[in-house]
Design a protein around this nucleic acid. Structure first.
Lengths: 69, 69
DNA sequence: AAAATATGTAAAATATTTTTGACATTTCGG
DNA sequence: CCGAAATGTCAAAAATATTTTACATATTTT
């Protein structure tokens, strides 16, 4: 699932490490999610959205076509 | 995390089994999520929201226990 | 150019979600 | 009331996500 974490994080002038700290996860978790290695848990998705002053629906773009099979 | 799946599902006149089928998960998964046994994956959250014609942010209410500064 | 900061990546261990199968209870229409 | 549909629950296993540790490259700052 595509997301705009990198873009919004850059706008907020936060490093991956800083965002990770706010969200209470490892820097590598933020990095992996930004690079679409896997999706975050729903809770973490909300935490990241809050940290970046946006919503889950704006931050993550789900293509319903590619729903889980 | 609290959610309004049960309420919206009832409004839509869908059974847990029907919603599960639309979302391509087991009936027990829908039941467990409705009863707050665990949170769904982000992808499933989007699928359920789509099926109930709403958004993830409206369907799930996050307690901003961990929020920005 | 060197130092400091930031980002990318990966494997193994850990944690969480989902499935499967089963059975009990509740709800609802006929 | 009876039977069917719907819901609740449980345990074990499978599937998926996160953390940790470690190191590499890249970018920025001085």
């Amino acid at each position: 699932m595509k997301n705009y974490i990198k873009e919004l994080r850059s706008s907020s002038k936060l490093s991956q490490a800083e965002l990770a700290k706010i969200c209470k996860v490892s820097r590598q978790t933020i990095n992996a999610i930004e690079n679409d290695k896997y999706d975050p848990t729903l809770q973490l998705a909300f935490n990241i959205a809050n940290a970046l002053d946006t919503t889950v629906d704006r931050l993550f773009v789900n293509n319903p076509k590619y729903s889980k099979t």
